[in-house]
Design a protein around this nucleic acid. Structure first.
Length: 493
RNA sequence: CGGGGUGUAGCGCAGUUGGUAGCGCACCUGGUUUGGGACCAGGUGGUCGCCCGUUCGAGUCGGGUCACCCCGACCA
């Protein structure tokens, strides 16, 4: 029987530590020896691949096509859009040489000083510059517009502090870049893509999000408007889970991307960019998981159903194998990914704990007792409830159950989040309560001074001016001036 | 870059007043087990982060250095 077991740290004890241990123990990822970088393990990558596939289809539905641009960006490109440079300059990795040579003692290599690049190359922190430099050649007429392209790639930002999935020096993402003939069309596209992200977060990840627009200080470097989806983690902190930017004509002007319009007049192209990254994995983990490990939404789980046999000898195992085979077949026919784990080197108890840790939504257990009775034990990961069901028609029941789990974890996450959104008009009260997490819906006078003071005094930031939330009037709780809007204020990752 | 902490087996750790390194997990072999993380027996595995010094002798003492972790500033 169980002795001292190596369980996860409890969420309530140390949320950060729980998260870190979970990522490692559930086999999602681990820290690389390379500073701030992450190794995504096969199980974690399988989830990311599923996300990619679904998002990619959603993009294509809106007319977007995939392309690929270089990893290395000439330094001069980065200096063309003033605000953009300022935003990214301090976190860029720079390539200065193109050759190594063996050292004097012939036991290692050194950078060959003779191989210095005339112009340094930047490892992309984002690709607006190199893409808009290319768009100049692609766009000449209003008939060339819009250009709707996306790339799946890696980017590098030399962050000071990193956390698995949430903030790593190198991360995987998609970045969409579009060029348009009119302001209206570009703005509509930026909002449309935000909608795609919100749809994906809620309907596939089962992560409820608040859509909104960022304040000027929180805006993307070079954008006129930054739209965001904000999710609440189980410790009440906010996680920006996706962004979409309306870039105006800033990049059109910086890279001289012009076209002739229908009136035969030269115009600068209008731009948007939008992205989601492997940070979504962090959102997924921190929204649903519990003290037993990961809880995955069926829509993204690499394994949706695991079947564990119980047996005392090879003859019994053979009987279970025979009973399981048609169930596996039927589940597969329904498009459900199923794993029958009859490996003999792990005992059932270990398998139970392990698949719970990995967040497999449904577990079926079948032993000699069940074979005699024509039953099967069904366990759902979200509630950990076990039930004995008839073997007959189990595949159809599992299919219904998966849909129910998908719905249930979303509702649970939404109820939790909604219970921690507070309307607050009093700064003293706010300062006290914001420490414990939650989203605070507060009146704001629209000034950067107020925003800065809140951040300085509470470490909380304005997450967004939310769309579609009630905007009761009020006065700014810090300055006492009339408010321009109620904004979401929270501590964040 | 500031403040704190840690470096000893793949992982988690212990190591007394300096005397030549140990425990748990994992791994390998054999057997018994299998309805909630199995047990017994045997076995493999270490330049104690690195450098210099003190000493007959350093994981242990002194100086330096590097790396990593946590808390801030920066951020998808």
């Amino acid at each position: 029987m169980a002795k001292e077991l190596d369980f996860l740290t409890k969420r309530s004890e140390d949320y950060s530590r729980w998260y870190n241990e979970l990522v490692v123990k559930a086999d999602l990822a681990e820290q690389s020896d390379v500073r701030g970088c992450m190794i995504i393990k096969p199980y974690g990558y399988a989830i990311w691949e599923k996300m990619q596939r679904i998002l990619d289809d959603m993009f294509k539905e809106t007319g977007v096509q995939n392309a690929y641009f270089p990893l290395l960006i000439p330094k001069s490109f980065l200096s063309k859009e003033a605000e953009h440079v300022e935003g990214f300059a301090k976190e860029c990795a720079v390539v200065t040489h193109y050759r190594l040579k063996t050292n004097d003692t012939h036991d290692g290599v050194v950078v060959d000083p003779a191989a210095r690049l005339e112009e340094e190359l930047i490892i992309r922190p984002t690709s607006e510059t190199i893409i808009w430099n290319t768009f100049r050649n692609w766009i000449h007429s209003y008939r060339d517009l819009p250009v709707l392209c996306n790339q799946w790639c890696n980017v590098m930002r030399w962050e000071m502090r990193t956390r698995l999935f949430l903030r790593t020096s190198e991360f995987l993402w998609q970045e969409g870049h579009t060029a348009h003939a009119t302001r209206e069309e570009a703005e509509a596209r930026a909002r449309q893509m935000l909608g795609v992200y919100a749809d994906f977060a809620e309907n596939y990840m089962a992560v409820p999000v608040i859509r909104g627009v960022k304040s000027e200080t929180e805006r993307f470097a070079g954008a006129l408007d930054t739209y965001t989806i904000e999710a609440m983690m189980q410790d009440g902190k906010a996680l920006q889970s996706g962004t979409s930017h309306f870039l105006g004509q800033n990049f059109g002007k910086a890279f001289d991307v012009t076209f002739m319009d229908e009136q035969n007049e030269r115009q600068y192209a209008w731009a948007t960019s939008w992205g989601v990254s492997t940070r979504l994995m962090g959102a997924l983990i921190m929204t649903h998981s519990d003290d037993n490990g990961l809880v995955l939404p069926p829509a993204l789980a690499p394994i949706q159903v695991v079947i564990v046999p119980i047996y005392k000898n090879q003859e019994q195992l053979a009987r279970v194998d025979a009973a399981v085979a048609p169930i596996v077949e039927e589940l597969k026919r329904k498009g459900i990914s199923v794993k029958y784990d009859n490996a003999d080197n792990k005992r059932p108890g270990f398998k139970f704990a392990d698949y719970e840790l990995k967040g497999v939504p449904v577990r079926l257990v079948l032993g000699a007792r069940d074979l005699d009775n024509g039953t099967v034990e069904v366990m759902r990961r979200d509630t950990l409830e076990k039930e004995t069901r008839q073997l007959e028609g189990i595949a159809a029941e599992v299919e219904t159950l998966l849909a129910d789990i998908q719905r249930n974890i979303f509702e649970k996450a939404r109820a939790y989040r909604d219970s921690r959104i507070y309307e607050c008009d009093n700064y003293e009260e706010f300062k006290q309560r914001v420490k414990n997490g939650g989203f605070f819906l507060c009146p704001w006078d629209g000034t950067a001074e107020t925003e800065a003071r809140i951040k300085e005094e509470t470490q909380a930031t304005i997450r967004c001016v939310p769309f579609g939330m009630k905007q009761t009037p009020g006065t700014d709780m810090v300055s006492g001036r009339p408010s321009v809007a109620r904004v979401i204020i929270a501590r964040s990752y």
